[in-house]
């Protein structure tokens, strides 16, 4: 393993059980300094437990948490340079916004002037300067979320943890906040670790994503990696829609029930699966030179900018710009280009 760079975070061989339930199974990951890292997975996959272990709110049964070269596994939460934005925000209801944000500085006995200037700077940065005398119950969901963010960031943590911070916001606001969060992280250059079950959110904000399922990390990669090159069926299906083709692996191709398809390389298995995203399938005007399929439109779903077609045989899902309409029963040619077909692990 490489020498630790700066204030990066390493998690090594973490195991955690709750009774008979194994929440985390030998989880290892490395987060670089200044990176926006996302733990993505369905509910119950262990991502929040892992976050709580990094925060120091939960002790692992085995394994290590190393921050900036120092083993912090058994250090309690109040001794770690790590701060958290909680899912419910957990603002202090009896303290006003200024005191909420100042809490971490007061705990560490900063001087009054220091507190004043740091808190005001954060409130200003997040557009909350008018709110400092209000109380949490007087704020909207979006404002509360920004207070929670300010309260954590004011401490300039080595790592900022975000536990599904967008889940309480409505869809429109969420999209806007995701972009803001992304920009904020770029500007500050701080390490962020986000936990989410929303794949679209993960793709928007992250530098790197770890996809988790059943207490394990299934795949690491950039958003483009995990979306375009999923390694297995779970990742392919969890990150958006995917067409799965089962068949027999042959030299640089796969023999399926709907025909033979050329692949960029030879699959490492005899029987297996390849995946293709609906938007990677092309609609051709005539029989393509290779990887063509003659298909009949069964159903069309209008999605605004795009149109989803469900086709026989398959069923295959194709996503196409919605300029042209398709009739149910219409026959069209499809091309499944080799670069769009991804070989999945067994």
């Amino acid at each position: 393993m490489n020498a630790q760079v700066g204030k990066g975070l390493t998690v090594r061989g973490i195991d955690k059980r709750f009774g008979l339930f194994r929440a985390l199974a030998d989880v290892t990951l490395q987060v670089h300094e200044g990176e926006f890292f996302t733990l993505l997975g369905p509910s119950g996959c262990g991502k929040t437990t892992l976050l709580r272990i990094i925060a120091g709110l939960e002790l692992p049964d085995a394994g290590q948490v190393v921050l900036g070269g120092q083993d912090i596994t058994s250090l309690p939460a109040n001794k770690r340079q790590v701060n958290t934005v909680f899912q419910s925000y957990a603002l202090f209801p009896h303290l006003n916004i200024f005191e909420n944000v100042a809490f971490g500085l007061r705990s560490r006995k900063f001087t009054q002037e220091e507190i004043q200037s740091r808190v005001n700077r954060r409130l200003e940065m997040l557009g909350l300067e008018e709110m400092d005398r209000r109380y949490p119950h007087q704020l909207s969901g979006g404002q509360k979320q920004r207070v929670a963010l300010a309260r954590a960031l004011v401490n300039e943590p080595d790592v900022l943890l975000l536990d599904e911070p967008m889940s309480a916001l409505d869809a429109r606001l969420r999209a806007q906040v995701q972009e803001e969060l992304r920009r904020l992280q770029r500007k500050l250059g701080q390490t962020f670790i986000l936990v989410t079950h929303d794949q679209a959110e993960a793709l928007v904000v992250s530098d790197r994503i770890a996809v988790m399922n059943q207490g394990r990390i299934i795949q690491f990669g950039t958003p483009k990696d995990v979306y375009e090159r999923p390694e297995n069926q779970f990742v392919a299906e969890f990150l958006g829609a995917a067409n799965l083709l089962h068949g027999r692996g042959v030299d640089k191709g796969i023999e399926t029930a709907i025909g033979f398809f050329h692949l960029g390389q030879t699959p490492p298995w005899d029987q297996g699966t390849v995946a293709i995203r609906p938007e990677r399938i092309r609609i051709a005007s005539q029989s393509p030179a290779r990887n063509g399929v003659r298909a009949r439109v069964r159903e069309t779903i209008y999605r605004g900018p795009n149109l989803d077609l469900w086709l026989e045989p398959g069923p295959l899902r194709v996503r196409t710009p919605s300029q042209r309409d398709y009739e149910s029963g219409e026959e069209i040619w499809l091309e499944l280009p080799p670069e769009g077909l991804v070989i999945l692990d067994e």
């Binding site: 925060a55 709110l57 109040n78 958290t84 909680f86 971490g104 705990s107 401490n155």
Partner: peptide, 8 residues
């Protein structure tokens, strides 16, 4: 927990 996370 939030308070503990904030060094209290």
């Amino acid at each position: 927990e939030a308070a503990r996370d904030l060094f209290a």
